[in-house]
Design a protein around this nucleic acid. Structure first.
Lengths: 221, 221, 221, 221
DNA sequence: TATGAATGAGCGTTCATTCAT
DNA sequence: CATGAATGAACGCTCATTCAT
């Protein structure tokens, strides 16, 4: 039986970091912007529509955010950290070893947690995915601050299990990319491509985790 | 030794369908549009920049394409068919059974072929991925005409191998999504996220195919 | 040896008129406004920049001055009186006759005094010159209240010296305009066009006064 | 009897330089812009008002001029050269010596010519004077290309007459500034300060020239 | 067929001014 | 008295689209 709570606990603190104080109007602006950006894409959204949906004057947006791009970045940039935060936790490895005797339990717990999180912030994540190719600021954050640390962390884990003989002897980057692709594919399929189609989330996560593990498992001698 | 040629052959005819006659100017417009759309995104591209890059007058674009969106669709829509064409071939199953005795050989051949194709048309595919969420026309094409047939075809294949006892007994959609995600993840990682990082394409494809197959393989009794 | 002090004395009282009591914040607002107006021009200055430079809230400006134009006028309008004040003094003619036996001494004393004054209030004078063409209020003040009285006063003086046979027989307005232009030209050249170039002020004033006097002097019979 | 025609002749060629071909709409835009800029000042003029007055769409302005400032500069910058052009003519000195035996005749001819020119282009000159303090481009043109050459030319002339003993021994810059101020004062008084007041132009120019010459003339031994 | 000048709606942004605190 | 968030009209400018040539 996979345990989910501990993962949730270590994550909670990081998630809450940066939930800065906002005035009521600012909050409405952000919510409206998320709505409109997600629906039409950043470039096709107009500040006047955002203002209207937020119930504020257009000028009010620019009191809080210097430019339209500023508004985008301030919405999307913190999401990147939050999304990948748990993997960067300092005591990640200890928690891993202490709480999760099996790789399966760990993967399942993380998957469930991140999918909950992703569903909750679906629109912002959509915007993030859309805009990364066009916003150098986001690319920089992704590459410099996040990607390297997350990949480093994952590499440690995979090599830990490789050493234990539980994972097949293949280049770590390939394994990493395989596992991550399968998980993200699950997310994109159900949240973005087929958002209206019901699915048995728990079962599908478990299946996918099993396929990943099975794929990566060392051949039995 | 995987065989690649036969796959290439059945694909060729489909690829060539729709390569309509274009005037030289029209061709230049399309090339310029692809360049600009891929770099800045459709919504942030201006027809004047496209015209300039193509070396034609702005009016010329609108002589060939009623609107800017028309230009986009006319570029991107045929790519969807071409990208997924081989999987929809009428004689797909026969070829599969005739030419490829093993699932591995088949998957490898298809992967190599589609990756070649994708690299060649990288920019258009980027545009396609970017614009599907915002262009109902593209979504419709994707859902109605393509997705269903491709998924149907894949379902047949997977169930074919399930029946032969080579694939694990899991819901077919999960298996499908798993395999596709792993392959697309490979593509996105190397062509979009890390386009400048060199990679051993042949080896990584083979590894990924193996991970997929291994993950999906029925447990040995 | 020209005497300067008496001129300074009659002027002093007028200068001080209108230096109304201001709160500290109001003073800072005015100073900031002068700075910004002089640098960018009235129309291109923003109240927010003035507020920032003054270290007050934007609203504070509008507590003291009903509109931005109000602020401009309240800065610039008193300067016009002060600038031309000495020429309007009631006892001007007496002082002239009592203190300055020669026209040269008088002109020199006035020139020195007004140039001192102008240097001290350079920025406000710049703003005044810039805005007179666009502010009917200022034009009115200039024409109705100032120009006529100053010109009347100068006319008296010139005709006084004409009567004494010291000044050439030419239409008084032409003489007036000639003398004033030469003096203002000196001011504009050194304070506005070439503010950074050092100059021997005393000598140049004396030269210019001499050129004016020489030009206007009645031909020796 | 002063001669005016020769001066007009050498000037003509320079004046006409740069009267580039303009479409009819472009001409209307420039005319409207001159009107509006002169009336309200550059910063307080709106492109929409200019467009309206010109009878074109607002966008049309920006097809011909990249920015509003571009429009300003393209109007005002050529005027500076034209205004000062005659003084920079290569054969200026020869013409001076050949055509004008007396300094008086020369000064009068130039004054009349430049005043005609100024009256014809009054509004643009107003705009030029207003905007020089705020447009570095114009300042640069004024300082680098025009001021130095014009001043050099004038310095030559004054020193020419100094050498002939006709002009008083005073620092040349002071003499220069005196003469120019008196002439510009005449211009500003009648064209800008009192544009509606009738004046005997020929007589006033002659008076002013006489005052200048008289002021600068070497004392008779 | 190809052009490119012209359009005008709409954009992101600024700013003087107001007013509840 | 001072604040600064909020306003919304107006701004300079862009752009897809049209059409006379």
């Amino acid at each position: 039986m996979p345990q989910q709570e501990p993962v949730d606990q270590w994550i909670q603190e990081l998630i809450n970091m940066g939930d800065e104080k906002m005035t009521e109007k600012q909050l409405k602006i952000v919510q409206a912007a998320v709505e409109v950006f997600a629906e039409k894409g950043y470039a096709s959204s107009s500040t006047s529509e955002i203002a209207q949906k937020a119930g504020v004057a257009e000028g009010t947006i620019f009191r809080h955010y210097k430019t339209k791009k500023d508004l985008l970045i301030s919405i999307v940039s913190p999401m990147m950290s939050k999304l990948l935060a748990p993997f960067v936790l300092n005591d990640f490895k200890e928690v891993l070893e202490g709480e999760f005797p099996t790789l399966e339990g760990f993967l399942y717990a993380v998957a469930v947690n991140r999918l909950h999180f992703a569903r909750k912030h679906l629109k912002i994540i959509k915007i993030l995915l859309q805009e990364i190719p066009f916003q150098p600021v986001l690319q920089e954050e992704f590459k410099q601050h996040i990607a390297r640390r997350v990949i480093g962390r994952f590499t440690e884990i995979i090599e830990h299990f490789k050493a234990k003989g539980e994972v097949i002897d293949m280049p770590t980057p390939v394994l990493l990319q395989f596992a991550i692709s399968a998980m993200i594919g699950l997310f994109i399929t159900h949240f973005i491509i087929l958002p209206d189609q019901p699915w048995d989330e728990e079962q599908e996560i478990r299946h996918t985790v099993n396929l990943i593990l099975h794929g990566m498992s060392a051949p039995q001698l």
